[in-house]
């Protein structure tokens, strides 16, 4: 039997020991917890390798930016078009702004509502697409005509030829053909098994088209990751392009989002998501890159936004002038970058 005091004294040694052990354990725990706090991550397979995908071999970049990005001064710029002489037209904010090639603004053509598309004919007429209708202006800003509205449409691109005007309707995923007076002539691109047309898939509101030098329409089919060539009568001739996150293909769910033709042949395509502007030849072989994520100031795919609308990633639009200079409109930053061949 232990003596009472003896027990207490032994006890205090044990207690000290226990408290010491406890203090050590607790300190260890806090240290572990702090290390854990910053370090604990899931394996590599649980992370999307977005940064690796954004890297582009610098040797493949064939263009360089001219000067700094040109501020459009708009809150939301929607579309860009350039004419042969190097003037460019930006539609957005209830106006079409006309810039000369050096970036100085020449005039603003006011519109009654937000434009969604713009086209410039060889005759210099400006076709502004206002969601569901087209208004035509002369190059000095006078309204020439206002066409009858289409019942529900979202026009995202306009191409004006010598006799016909084509508009891409993203809502119905169809190309609308008009004559120069605005009378509808027909629809192109609707799903038609008889004519071997699979139909255009437009998951996000980017749908572009142009009239190629060979006299055929080139229509972007973003959901199928390809460019389709149609006759004016709506026959699908051929198509090119394939989905791939690799440089030679079109990345993501729905790309390319914009298309422009180079004066000496070949096409400029724009992709959203992993933003890339690339050049393809007539057959659809990759020629090179105009600008990649680095050049276009791409940020992380997910952003921290106070307001939801700030988080909406927006796309690009491209236009080419007679010298082959490429004008890239960045809708999210509302700036135009001009690229020239190196």
């Amino acid at each position: 039997m232990k003596d009472r005091f003896g027990k207490i004294n032994n006890g205090s040694a044990a207690v000290l020991l226990a408290i010491g052990a406890f203090a050590a354990g607790f300190t260890g725990y806090v240290l572990l917890d702090r290390a854990n706090h910053s370090g604990k991550r899931a394996g590599a397979d649980y992370r999307y390798p977005i940064e690796e995908l954004a890297k582009i071999d610098p040797a493949k970049i064939l263009y360089r930016q001219v000067g700094t990005a040109i501020e459009t001064g708009m809150e939301s710029a929607a579309a860009i078009e350039a004419d042969w002489a190097g003037n460019f037209y930006v539609a957005g904010d209830r106006a079409v702004a006309v810039f000369s090639g050096d970036g100085s603004k020449r005039r603003d053509i006011p519109l009654v509502s937000e434009p969604t598309a713009i086209g410039v004919g060889e005759d210099g007429l400006i076709y502004a697409g206002l969601s569901d209708r087209i208004e035509v202006y002369s190059s000095d800003g006078q309204q020439v005509s206002a066409w009858a509205p289409i019942h529900t449409a979202l026009l995202t691109a306009i191409a004006a030829g010598k006799t016909d005007v084509f508009a891409a309707d993203a809502l119905h995923k169809i190309v609308r053909r008009f004559d120069k007076q605005g009378n509808p002539l027909g629809l192109i691109g609707a799903k038609d098994p008889d004519r071997n047309i699979e139909g255009i898939v437009v998951p996000s509101p980017y749908f572009d088209l142009l009239i190629a030098p060979d006299g055929l329409l080139r229509v972007v089919n973003p959901g199928r990751h390809r460019i389709e060539a149609y006759t004016f009568d709506g026959y699908l001739e051929w198509h090119w392009g394939r989905p791939s996150v690799g440089l030679e293909g079109f990345s993501g769910c729905c790309n390319p989002i914009a298309l422009a033709a180079l004066p000496k042949g070949g096409y400029v395509t724009c992709e959203k998501g992993l933003v890339r502007v690339k050049v393809y030849d007539e057959e659809g072989n990759l020629v090179g890159v105009v600008a990649g994520p680095d050049q276009l100031g791409w940020q992380e795919p997910l952003r921290v936004c106070e307001k939801p609308e700030d988080c909406i990633s927006r796309g690009l639009d491209a236009a080419v002038d007679g010298q082959g200079r490429i004008y890239v409109l960045d809708q999210s930053k509302n700036v135009v970058r001009i690229f020239e061949k190196k």
Binding site: K40, R41, A42, G43, A44, D45, Y46
Partner: peptide
Amino acid sequence: IRWTDPKQTDKLAALR
């Protein structure tokens, strides 16, 4: 769960 699984998934990721 803390040590082996992440390594396994990394191996699988490399395979993929």
